Computed example of a mutant assay.
Amino acid sequence: MNRSVLITGGNRGIGRAISEAFLKAGDQVAVAHRSDDELPDALNLRCDVTDTAQVDAAFTAAEAAHGPVEVLVSNAGISRSAPLAAMTEDQFSQVLDTNLTGAYRVARRATRGMLRLRRGRMIFISSVMGGAGLQGAGNYAASKAGLVGLARSIAREYAGYGITANLVAPGLVRTDMIEEMPEGMRRHLVDRTFLKRAAEPDEIAATVLWLAADGSRYITGAEIPVDGGLRLGA
């Protein structure tokens, strides 16, 4: 499609699958991440989304290489799990700063080019846990719930400029993050899904790619669950 696409946290797990899907579709992909694990064929940019200056530098580099960003996928996220009584303020604020405020930073920066183009797609990777809550991870669930309000506000504000904002809400996905889960919690979540398995990262990527496609231009403010029925499970 040859669009300018920027994906945060796009070098590992779900983000990597999303990056690879856009590359396969023929788009020009900039991947913003903090680690040394680079993605072949993409423009790899070092960027910590908790740092406004780094966000601006990443967008400036992507724009210089590919033109104004037409598709933003805000995927960068962390978890710092602990029961509420044991959760420190740092654990809570670090997760919110990366997962929610980081999404605000990249979305705000993306509006510059999208407003000039009078078009754009913003896609936020939320979580089924944003609506259901997650025992021992109130900070993570709160950050993902906050993305819903952010995306829907953007959808309202910028619809007149041809900019849409949507969310994809995965359930349990086969990534490093679930490998770090206690076995009991992982088994419980799998048992709650109708399909009795975790999703593969490419199944999340397919939904993101669809939301960015021309055929989805009339969708905005939507949150699409890709969770195997997890949010409906008992």
Rank of each mutant, 00 (worst) to 15 (best):
R3D: 05
S4E: 06
S4G: 02
R12P: 03
G13Q: 10
G15V: 07
G15W: 09
G15D: 01
I18R: 02
V31N: 07
V31P: 05
R34I: 13
S35L: 06
E38I: 13
L39C: 14
P40L: 02
D51S: 11
T52S: 08
D56G: 10
F59Q: 13
F59Y: 15
E63H: 03
A64H: 08
A64M: 07
A65D: 05
H66Q: 06
P68A: 15
P68C: 11
L72V: 10
S74L: 04
S74G: 04
S79N: 00
P83M: 08
A86C: 09
D90Y: 05
S93Q: 12
V95F: 09
N99K: 09
L100D: 08
T101P: 12
G102W: 08
V106H: 00
R108G: 10
R109V: 15
A110I: 07
A110N: 04
M114R: 01
L117H: 04
I125V: 13
G130K: 10
G130M: 13
G131V: 10
G133I: 15
L134Y: 11
A137C: 11
N139Y: 02
N139M: 00
N139R: 00
A142E: 06
A142N: 11
S143M: 03
L147V: 14
L147A: 04
T164S: 09
N166T: 13
L167S: 07
V168S: 02
L172K: 03
E180Q: 12
R186M: 12
R187K: 10
F194D: 06
R197N: 09
A206D: 09
T207Y: 02
L209D: 01
W210T: 00
L211D: 01
S216N: 04
G221L: 09
I224V: 15
V226M: 06
V226E: 04
D227F: 10
G229N: 13
G233A: 10
A234E: 14
